[in-house]
Design a protein around this nucleic acid. Structure first.
Length: 121
RNA sequence: AGAGUCAGCGAGAGAGUUGCGGAGUUGCUCUAAUCGGCAACUUUGAGGAAAGUCCGGACUCCCGAAAGACCGAACUUGCUGGAUAACGUCCAGUGCGCGUGAGCGUGAGGAAAGUGCCACAGAAAAAUACCGCCAGGGGUGCAAUGCUCCUUGGUAAGGGUGCAAAGGUGCGGUAAGAGCGCACCAGCAGCAUCGAGAGGUGCUGGCUCGGUAAACCCCAAGUGGGAGCAAGGUCGAAGGGAGAAGGGUUGGUCUGUUUACCCCUCCCGUUUUUAAGAACCGCUUGAGGUGUCUGGUAACAGGCAUCCCAGAUAGAUAACUCUCCUCAGAACAGAAUCCGGCUUAUGUCUGACUCUCUCU
RNA sequence: GGACGCAUAGCUCAGUUGGUUAGAGUACCACGUUGACAUCGUGGGGGUCACUGGUUCGAGUCCAGUUGCGUCCA
């Protein structure tokens, strides 16, 4: 994982919680799911992000890994500006098979703004 | 120049910025202490197939008195010899087949131990006589040694059928024919010889025998069976569910009232069990790489020197920029306990060799 | 990661020890029945037996490899 350990979403239960209770924002190639813990409480955990690339995107493990890495690399830049206490899942749609790095960059920026996850907006 | 065969290297290289996994050192922090957390530095970080899971092992647990010997069953393998921990793998050789050739392929034991099957067609699918050919006998009619009919026997030349028809071709021979005889070829048996063996070569003999064993089977060799690192083991015990017996208490039911008994709820500790989750071990020093020498045609083995080279657990290699190489820049593709193979997917380059054409 | 199973008509499935032209139901089409439709009856079309190679005279079936889909195991 290109992300620091603190910012990874690991537990199976956390994923379930985000899927059931979180809000959903669709893009063209990506899906962003968000679930915020009590925003007022001061148990400020850092933002945790998980990336999901299903087998429907591609059968090849190398291609799936490549997409994950590219998304992680983009998230590097956004990490400092994320609000704490949030859990995010980024899903990849099958259309993203032929996508380049720049596509992901634009799309992610849009989604993050839409979901109001960023600080100072 | 074109077409082709075989073998091998390597899996773009270097620099910078941001960022991640492991290991080590130092500092800070936490704690009674260890563990842990953070930061800095150093070092290291996917493959030739990591893949398919098709074989063979190592390792672990279960079954088993034990897995030491023999027998049987079941399964696997199948030219010969060797290599190996083992193998369905590899090396060398033999036979057969393909190719003009370099070379390539080979599931290649036994059908003369037995059983089954060989549809349709055909007389017959393993010893058979339908048509035919020939001979003997009889009947009928005619001038007839001939024709026609019946019957007995001989025959495997010819016909047609079929994937396949009883060794093939030619000559002789015969009533007609036939390995009945001869020559050559093929096959079988025996002997001699060469070879470690599969087999090769030569001579002699009698004249014969369909195919199928990726049908059952026979022979030879091998394997205790089953599950697989999500195997298996250790630590810890906060909280949850269920059952058992015990104690306490509240409320309800019952009663005119009280006590005892019974049912449900709650609490307490004891014990058994279950599900889910977490931590650690297994977890990487190995039938290990690299270099060199020796033995061997080779696969490979042995000696010496040297090196330590991923160990993650929602799972680490990315993004951007520049330079070199190139006409242009890359294909197939991601370790998950570890090895030896096989198979499949694939881009580039180098060398050797073969054939064809053209020129000198 | 490991252990298994399946693939036959548009769909759901048969297909015994290899054998002649691979079947059934449903769906589709045509005709009949009806004033018309449904039901019903008759007939018809539709198959790379997942793919590739081998054994065999002959493979849906036997053998080997490939592809796709699915199940189970802490």
């Amino acid at each position: 994982m290109g992300l620091p350990k603190l910012n990874r979403l690991k537990h199976w239960r956390d994923f379930q919680r985000v899927y059931k209770q979180g809000t959903c924002h669709h893009g063209r190639y990506l899906v962003l799911r968000k679930w915020s813990t009590d925003q007022d409480s001061f148990g400020l955990t850092p933002p945790q992000i998980g990336i999901v690339v299903g087998k429907k995107v591609s059968k090849k493990a190398t291609l799936r890994n490549r997409i994950k890495r590219q998304i992680r690399a983009i998230l590097q830049d956004f990490l400092p500006s994320l609000k704490p206490g949030q859990k995010l899942i980024i899903g990849v749609k099958p259309k993203a098979r032929e996508c380049e790095y720049e596509h992901f960059l634009r799309e992610l920026e849009q989604l993050l703004r839409k979901a109001e996850v960023l600080n100072g907006h």
